[in-house]
Design a protein around this nucleic acid. Structure first.
Lengths: 72, 72
DNA sequence: TTGCAATGTAAAATATACTTTACATTATGT
DNA sequence: ACATAATGTAAAGTATATTTTACATTGCAA
């Protein structure tokens, strides 16, 4: 039931982008550190707007940051 | 303040896809007709998961359905 | 070893997406 | 003219994303 889940590469992208910290990413995307933490831990998926903001910060397409894939 | 807004082409895509009705799209994406209506009317943006589902239904990349653009 | 930066856990409060129900409007076909 | 399908408006309720606060852990540098 549900079939697919949303995964993300935020952690990897942070390190690729000058080892950006969770707090720094939170700051740039206008949310709190807890929100970034929860999303990285996949406790919940971000809103579409936040997903776009994070993608923008990494200068990468949304689908390179978030993937909607079958859960194994 | 905010700079950007989320726009979408759901309406156009519905018509391109066999004139799919709002109710039909709602059905396929597992939400109610009101939700599709509200998103088309840009009353609010969908969750990332719903955005992915809708894109899947139209067999098109998410960014072809939703755009995060400067508000004119 | 002490201190600090980064990350993690947790819980209560708020904002926003989404549902449910009900009714109004518009267009189309018969 | 009537019936019906599709779309629109609206309001109250539920679910989930996000905030706020507070504290624990880990690693690294002085």
């Amino acid at each position: 039931m549900a079939g697919k889940v949303i995964k993300n590469n935020i952690r990897v992208l942070r390190f690729q982008n000058d080892e950006m910290t969770q707090a720094a990413l939170a700051d740039k995307s206008g949310v709190t550190r807890q929100t970034i933490l929860a999303i990285e831990a996949a406790k919940y998926a971000p809103s579409l707007e936040l997903a776009f903001k994070i993608s923008d910060i990494f200068s990468t397409p949304l689908e390179d940051v978030f993937q909607y894939v079958d859960k194994e």
